[in-house]
Amino acid sequence: MAEQAQYEELIRQFSAFGAVKRELGRLLPADCPGGSAAVLTLLGRHGDMRISKLSELLAVDMSVTSRHVAHVAERGWIERSPDPADKRSRILRLTPRGEDLLDEMSERTARMLADRLSDWPDADVVQLTRLMARLRASFDDCRVPPARPPARSGAAPSTRTPAITT
């Protein structure tokens, strides 16, 4: 298992990674904020689904998901149709305009990454992708808090607070 200093360095790298996320976010069209892009991406990856499933995949409250869905639906990027199994529910699906926008955003992002990582060996890009997928899998259900280690008897509480910014 890694030592404390390695985890502290990892925290610093996560914080610095916010700059990468911000730069990638600048590639999004002005009328497509990050939450909207996430909705389109998940529908593109997983196909048609109910809003409850989308909310679960986004790991946000249903009210937040509803606002994102309303935003993308108003722009004609998705459609909401009655669920044949339950007429009270709606099935969300990408429209051709939404698919085109998703393709455009994907191409922009891929071009930027190809440019920024052009001096990386292919094997390093593959390894980074594999490790990031593995890290994400370790946090799959981020709504369930991890078990807290027992407090050390006689130890003063830590005053260190990791500074994680986005």
Rank of each mutant, 00 (worst) to 15 (best):
M1C: 08
A2H: 12
E3G: 02
Q4R: 13
A5W: 03
Q6I: 01
Q6G: 07
Y7A: 01
E8L: 14
E9L: 14
E9Q: 15
E9P: 09
I11N: 15
S15K: 00
A16F: 05
G18Q: 14
G18V: 13
K21L: 15
E23S: 12
L24R: 07
G25P: 06
R26Q: 15
L28F: 08
D31S: 06
D31P: 05
D31C: 02
C32F: 00
G34F: 05
G34Y: 04
G35M: 01
G35A: 03
S36F: 00
A38V: 07
V39E: 04
L40Y: 00
T41W: 01
L42Q: 12
L43Q: 08
L43D: 12
G44D: 11
G44I: 04
H46L: 15
H46T: 12
G47V: 03
G47C: 07
D48P: 13
M49V: 03
R50H: 15
R50V: 10
I51E: 15
I51A: 15
S52W: 00
S52R: 09
S52D: 14
S55F: 05
L57H: 03
L58Y: 02
A59D: 07
M62G: 05
T65Q: 14
T65L: 15
H68L: 12
V69H: 02
V69C: 09
A70C: 07
H71I: 01
V72R: 03
V72P: 10
A73F: 00
A73T: 07
E74P: 01
G76R: 03
G76W: 01
I78K: 00
E79R: 09
S81F: 06
S81P: 01
S81T: 13
P82D: 03
P82V: 01
P82C: 04
D83S: 08
A85D: 12
A85R: 09
A85S: 11
D86T: 01
D86E: 07
R90S: 11
I91R: 11
L92S: 07
L92K: 03
D100I: 06
L101M: 12
L101A: 10
L101N: 02
E104L: 10
S106C: 06
S106Q: 12
S106I: 04
R108I: 06
M112D: 02
L113A: 11
D115T: 11
D115E: 13
R116D: 10
L117D: 14
D119W: 01
D122K: 06
A123W: 00
V126A: 14
V126R: 07
R130I: 03
A133K: 08
R134M: 05
R134E: 12
F139Q: 02
P146V: 03
P146A: 08
A147E: 12
R148D: 11
P149D: 11
P150K: 00
A151I: 02
S153M: 09
G154A: 05
A155Y: 08
A155G: 09
P157A: 02
P157R: 01
S158Y: 04
R160M: 15
T161D: 08
P162Y: 08
P162F: 10
A163E: 15
A163F: 11
T165P: 06
T166A: 10
